[in-house]
């Protein structure tokens, strides 16, 4: 009797799990296209704010040349997972701006990654070094290290941008 009950529990749980998996797969299929379109639209918006044109940074080349700016997309490891960001470089290699595309950092602490954050804007100022923020040490340090690495890569392997900035329609 005991064994039968235990078996029943196992079967019911397994059946429920299979059903749940099927439902999730179906919902994922149904929403996938819209979710991707939303993410792309959000990215377009970020690039528009950085470079003045609506575009996406292609994943494969990690690079976009627009209006004297070179945009590079990169990833760093934060506290809650990966932080995706775009760095805009001026022609002389200085950082013109940094925007975060996607992150999984703790809400509240992650406010420093918002587009309107003073801290993130500090990257675009140039000369002064950006410091980590107390209370969001891991997140801010991860972004600083990531952007520094991106910049090093950018300086070591200058962009393959065609001579004369591309003049895409705004």
């Amino acid at each position: 009797m005991k064994a039968r009950q235990a078996l029943q529990g196992v079967f019911v749980t397994a059946a429920l799990m299979a059903a749940a998996g099927a439902v999730l797969a179906a919902v994922q299929q149904l929403t996938e296209e819209r979710v991707r379109a939303n993410a792309l639209a959000a990215e377009r918006q970020v690039v528009r704010e950085l470079a003045g044109v609506a575009a996406t940074v292609p994943d494969d080349s990690l690079l976009l040349c627009e209006r004297d700016l070179v945009l590079r997309r990169d990833t760093t490891r934060g506290y809650g997972g990966e932080v995706d960001y775009i760095v805009a470089f001026a022609q002389d290699g200085r950082i013109a701006g940094v925007r975060v595309l996607h992150h999984a950092e703790t809400p509240g602490f992650a406010d420093i990654l918002l587009p309107q954050s003073d801290w993130l804007a500090g990257f675009g100022v140039g000369e002064a070094e950006v410091h980590a923020v107390t209370g969001a040490t891991i997140t801010s340090r991860a972004v600083i290290d990531g952007v520094t690495a991106t910049r090093r890569r950018h300086v070591e392997a200058p962009s393959a941008c065609p001579p004369g900035p591309s003049e895409a329609a705004p």
Binding site: V23, V27, T31, R34, N38
Partner: peptide
């Protein structure tokens, strides 16, 4: 919860 997350990503990004 996962369904709610997916729907929100699709319709209230």
């Amino acid at each position: 919860t996962t369904v709610a997350m997916l729907l929100m990503q699709a319709y209230a990004f």
